[in-house]
Design a protein around this nucleic acid. Sequence first.
DNA 1: CACAGGATCCGG
DNA 2: CGGATCCTGTGG
Length: 183
Amino acid sequence: MRPLPRSFYDRDTVLVARELLGKHLVFAPDGVPRIGRIVETEAYLGPHDLAAHSSKGLTERTRVMFGPPGHAYVYLIYGMHYCLNVVTEREGHASAVLLRAIEPIQNVSGRTCGPGLLCKAMGIDKRLNGHDLLSDDLFITETSSPECFRIVARPRIGVDYAGAWAKRKLRFYIRGNAFVSRP
DNA sequence: CACAGGATCCGG
DNA sequence: CGGATCCTGTGG
């Protein structure tokens, strides 16, 4: 299992969000790999995207989003759930892809159909904020035998405050997959 | 220092 | 549909 190269993340955010579908998220904090297949993502395009955290500007919280691609942006939401993003495009572009759901593959127990549940099941918290995804304990990898699937595009969840940006179809999931949070 | 609000989840 | 729960950003 090899981590995807930095060049994978240093590309158009919508393309990265779509191509992350079907890939394996691996977290091995104690050497034992917990693996989930990514089945649902959302693209956050940068400061001009009013649904993106980076639209509020560079702050301590959004610092990682403004950094180089291929790093984990983890934040606490509603005081109780963590969300995991991967930073995309060149440094300073401040775009990212939110991982919303995975299908358990190995050493993952509990529900995984939602960004908070995904992190809980994988054991991911804010200690991983800023973590390089080209590392040996947290990374995303190509599957050995990729399956064919159709991609569905829908508006993102929970961003009604973002005006016209809330209507953009920047949420992507694998059609028919049982682990998608809101099919 | 005070306070408002959030890329969610759960239970009724 | 409301409540949980707490960190962050902003303003005084």
